[in-house]
């Protein structure tokens, strides 16, 4: 480089202007569409209403009836999240080997001399079918699954747990498969070339290397699911979310506050427990 070449330092990417223009256009479209009433929001009356609402939340109600609702709500919400995560992980484990490319269509378990074309084609179609199934489970939102299961087994914690399980199964099958695809292939190749059976190669050459990643993904999903099982209550008729929605509906702010505190405590507790265990696993 000649000394005359000017060095231009660009602190931000060159495309920034285009991105800013795009964001501005999207903002304009969105504002035009929903017409947010900011003028009414920033009036003294509305701001006082916000203050009032949050002021009424204190102190949380602690009479016997509220605490009774709190107990059943906590049990239902926590149970839905645990059962949903557990069954979802099972679905994920079943789909995982078929969704992972390095297991089902290439890699140590598949690559070998003289493998018939038809078997490779079969493997590929099984792989695609498994991925399609996982994508269907994943992209149908959990509250739509809940609608279906409410219809089948009645509204309640069981339907909620099933809905979370099915959705989680789809998400986690994809996550698990990605974790397997990132495993170092050399131990598996070594086992395979020393004559180990395919199942044993998977069990001892691939799975151990992915084990802690799989556990971490499951725990992380539990953190998401505790929030989803709260939200299912707001949509349906089960758990802490429902009790809170009901209390707000009849303007019983202090009972709503009790359930709100419980939701926050539960979410924080699950986050803390999950990150504690994940740290010990790493």
């Amino acid at each position: 480089m000649s000394a005359a070449t000017p060095v231009v330092h660009r602190p931000f990417p060159r495309t920034t202007a285009w991105v800013v223009a795009g964001l501005a256009a999207a903002t304009a479209l969105a504002v035009w569409r929903v017409q947010p009433d900011v003028a009414s929001l920033l009036t003294l009356k509305t701001l006082t209403a916000f203050g009032d609402t949050f002021g009424r939340l204190w102190p949380p109600r602690t009479d016997a009836e509220t605490l009774d609702n709190l107990r059943t709500g906590l049990a239902e919400t926590a149970s839905m999240s645990v059962v949903g995560t557990f069954l979802g992980a099972l679905i994920g484990l079943l789909l995982m080997p078929f969704c992972a490319e390095t297991i089902s269509v290439r890699g140590a378990l598949v690559d070998e001399e003289g493998r018939p074309r038809s078997r490779q084609a079969l493997a590929l179609s099984v792989h695609n079918a498994a991925r399609l199934l996982a994508n269907v489970l994943r992209t149908v939102p959990y509250f739509v699954w809940a609608m279906l299961f409410w219809f089948m087994v009645g509204p309640g914690a069981f339907a909620g747990a099933l809905a979370i399980a099915v959705h989680t199964g789809g998400v986690i099958a994809r996550n698990y498969a990605q974790a397997l695809d990132q495993v170092d292939p050399r131990p598996a190749l070594a086992l395979r070339s020393s004559g180990a059976r395919r199942f044993h190669v998977f069990l001892f050459g691939i799975l151990p290397a992915a084990r802690s990643a799989l556990a971490a993904l499951t725990l992380y999903r539990w953190e998401v699911n505790i929030r989803e099982s709260t939200v299912l209550g707001l949509v349906g008729t089960v758990g802490l979310g429902f009790h809170m929605k009901y209390a707000i509906g009849i303007f019983d702010w202090k009972a709503a506050s009790t359930h709100l505190v419980a939701i926050i405590a539960l979410v924080l507790a699950v986050d803390a427990l999950s990150s504690f265990v994940r740290k010990r696993l790493a």
């Binding site: 209403a49 949050f54 809170m244 707000i248």
Partner: peptide
């Protein structure tokens, strides 16, 4: 959770999408 915030905000100020 964001939906819980929404539930509180809707009651405080029922202003459409806001």
């Amino acid at each position: 959770p964001e939906v819980v915030w929404a539930l509180l905000f809707v009651k405080a100020a029922p202003l459409g999408a806001l």
